[in-house]
Amino acid sequence: MGAVGRSARQPTRDDGRLLKTVGEQSYLRGGHRHGRRDFLERLLRGLLDAMDHTADAEQLAAGPGVLQRLDPRIKTLGLLTLVVTAVFVKSLVALGGLFAFATALALASRMTLRRLAGQVWTGVLLFTGVLAVPAIFLVPGDALVAVPLLDWTITRQGLRGAAFLVGRAETAATFALLVILTTPWPQVLKALRSLGVPLVLVAILGMTHRYIFVLLENSVQLFEAKRSRVMGPLSGPERRRMAIASVVVLLEKSLHLATEIHLAMIARGYRGEVHLLDEFRTRTRTWDWIALASFLAVAAIAIGWQWLPSIGDRI
């Protein structure tokens, strides 16, 4: 069967780009914009952007960087510890330190500040900001500043509470993003598996990730096919009807796909119980241990900071 491999595609620098398999077939990519984009075009661009984003993330995970070099299990464990630490830490200084550490790790792992701001910080700030801003005024305590005309007062306790909420969310989300963006998804799954996460859960996560792409490709093809047959601008009800019809078609396709996959699994011996092979070879790299020790030390310092009430109270 050696001859079968004769025409094997050699990996290229572009290998990580989903565009090679899907995006390059899209007439929308690099296409012209004619004023306001219609519903289908916006939807398609959204789907293609999602695929681009994933391809980008996979490239980053496969590239060089401090976190990329670590054993995924140790990295996942360490970063999850820091996520938990960020949630429970009771000092703003410690929280700031953790946030700075997360940012430094991101930079050392070839992530730009722009990417962090775009993918985590802005979204988290907007979401938690909605919850945090009222607390600045509503939490009773020592008045710091009075807002002119409104007769509202910003309290020290309110400000502190809001800072904690936003800081914890930003720091935890940054650490979580570091796990995802610096580890190829299959490695994340295997790390979870070796850390004792139930097999069924890992298998479901793996298949979900696998078929998200198939469904995304189907969606892109479906909407492009529809778009190619739309002659003019659609009215609101028409757009909604088309969107609902597309959802139904995609649901039917995904159900059909699920049935076929189940048959394919049965054909290969699946009898209702998942068995997976853990391929990790424990290579005890000094780096891994240093990383783990650093993680734990930082976590301990951050947690321990709460027992220094003088500093905590001053902030």
Binding site: W185, P186, L189, G206, M207, H209, R210, Y211, L257, E260, I261, L263, A264, M265, R268, G269, H275, L276, L277, E279
Partner: peptide, 17 residues
């Protein structure tokens, strides 16, 4: 339909497992 595992390695290991 047939390639439902996260990696080629897992795909090949599935049947024997």
């Amino acid at each position: 339909v047939q390639l439902f595992n996260p990696t080629v390695f897992d795909e090949l290991a599935f049947g024997p497992l």
